[in-house]
Every structure is written in C-alpha cells, then in structure tokens.
C-alpha cells in the first residue's frame, strides 16, 4: 500500500473510533426514557413471557417475526452458496491432521456438542440462545472436516442429514407460528406449553422450542455452507 492509502486508513479509523467512543459514552442510563417500550419490557417482560433473559424475550416473543425474517435470510444465503458451489456431489477426501489432534478432538467433541445444546436450551435463562448455540453446533462439522478429513464428515454427518435437520428446524419454527393462529391468537403467539415457575428450565412458554428450532436450522445451515465450500478443494487428491 502506498503512503496516501495508509494516511487515509488511519484517518477513517480514527474517525470511526471517535464516533464509537462518543456513542458508547452516550448509552442511556436506566429509566431515562420513561413510558417507552424499554420501560414496558423491563417492567412487564417476566410476567408476560416468563423468560428471565430480556434479549431472548424480545427476540423470540415480542419480535419473533423479525427472527423468522433473519432465519429466512440465512436460508437464502445457504441456498445461494450451495447453488453456486455445488458442482460435484462426490465424497472427496483429505487425510486430516495428525494422530494426537484426532484423538484429543475425539475426546473433546462430545463436550463441545454438550455446550452447544446447553446454550440452546438455556437460552431463556442465561445469555445465549438459538443462534449462538447453533453456530457452536455448526462448528462441530467444521472440526470434522478439518481434523478428520471431509470424507469422515460426509460419512458421519451426510448432506442429507444436514438438509433434514435444517428443514425440520425451520418447520418447527413456522409450525409454532401457525399453532398460535390455530389456538385463536396471533401468528407466533407465545403458547402456554411449558408453564413451570419462572427461572426453571421448563418455563417460558414456547420460547425454548423456538430456540431449539432456530439452533438446529442455523447449525445445519452453516455446516452446509462450509461443506459446500470445502468439497471441491480436495477434488484432485481423491484416493479413497
């Protein structure tokens, strides 16, 4: 890069940094905007939705329609990438990494899976939710492809299974939405399925089910993206 480009980069970066600094220092204090939607959510969210985590309450109850739009965007991205990159459906292979890495990840991968499931199912109690846990589940497929070779990934966790998981996650989400209409409410209404006391695992209505649906959808979608990107890389060295 030339010198003017360096100066230009420093100028833009310092401008952005000053903007970030000013806007971070002007974050609203608590109860500054009375009678706003913020006030309503903070005061009534626990009794209305039963979710301890306000962000999950907003994402999957008050604004669940927006989350449906987001997962539709992910679905569009997955479809586009698969359409562009899938020229061959052969299971193509690499050898993977060394023996030590394979054994250690053989011990670690169940715990990574458990962590992803924990983040998904405790989305209404602690930070996290369907999206973050789903990305962790999708990372397991990436670990399989890199550490064990993409042939292992193809055999253990084939593209058909991934497509099935993604579709079932999306169908669970939309089915819960239409269930609200069938029971006489709005689309994506918070159904009264799990009604234990607030703060336990089986609480918060239909929010845990929406979390599980979004988690499987996002995880399988990202795994499909990564698999369709990596499958052509090893085409030259097929020695199954």
């Amino acid at each position: 890069m030339s010198k003017t480009k360096h100066i230009f980069a420093v100028l833009i970066l310092s401008l952005l940094g000053i903007t970030l600094l000013v806007s971070l220092s002007k974050l609203p204090n608590q109860f500054e905007y009375a009678n706003s939607i913020y006030h309503h959510v903070v005061n009534n969210s626990i009794t209305e939705t039963g979710s301890l985590n306000f962000v999950t309450a907003i994402l999957y109850d008050y604004r669940a329609y927006d989350s449906l739009g987001e997962s539709t965007i992910i679905f569009g991205a997955v479809s586009g990438i698969v359409l562009l990159l899938s020229r061959k459906t052969l299971p193509v292979s690499s050898h993977g990494l060394s023996f030590i890495v394979k054994r250690t990840f053989g011990m670690l991968t169940p715990f990574i899976f458990l962590f992803g499931i924990y983040i998904i199912t405790h989305g209404h109690l602690s930070p996290g939710g369907g999206f973050q846990g789903g990305v962790i589940l999708g990372a397991i497929s990436i670990i399989f492809s890199i550490v064990y070779g993409s042939e292992f990934d193809y055999k253990r966790y084939s593209p058909t299974t991934k497509t099935l998981l993604e579709t079932s996650g999306a169908l669970l989400f939309i089915g819960l939405g239409f269930m609200g209409i069938l029971l006489g409410g709005n689309f994506l209404m918070n159904l009264n399925i799990l009604n234990a006391e607030v703060g336990s695992l089986l609480s918060a209505g239909s929010i845990p089910f929406i979390n599980i649906g979004i988690g499987f959808k996002i995880g399988a979608g990202l795994a499909i993206i990564f698999y369709s990107m990596i499958q052509k890389t090893f085409k030259e060295e097929v020695d199954l």
Binding site: N53, V55, T56, I119, P127, G128, G129, F131, Q132, V135, I136, G138, A139, I142, L222
Partner: peptide, 14 residues
C-alpha cells in the same frame, strides 16, 4: 453478554 457470545462464536470462530 448475548451480543458478546454471538461475536465470539461467529467473529472469532466461524
């Protein structure tokens, strides 16, 4: 913490 978890998983990992 929600945004932090998403940023850590997506930005640093994926």
């Amino acid at each position: 913490p929600d945004v932090a978890l998403a940023e850590a998983v997506i930005g640093a990992g994926l």
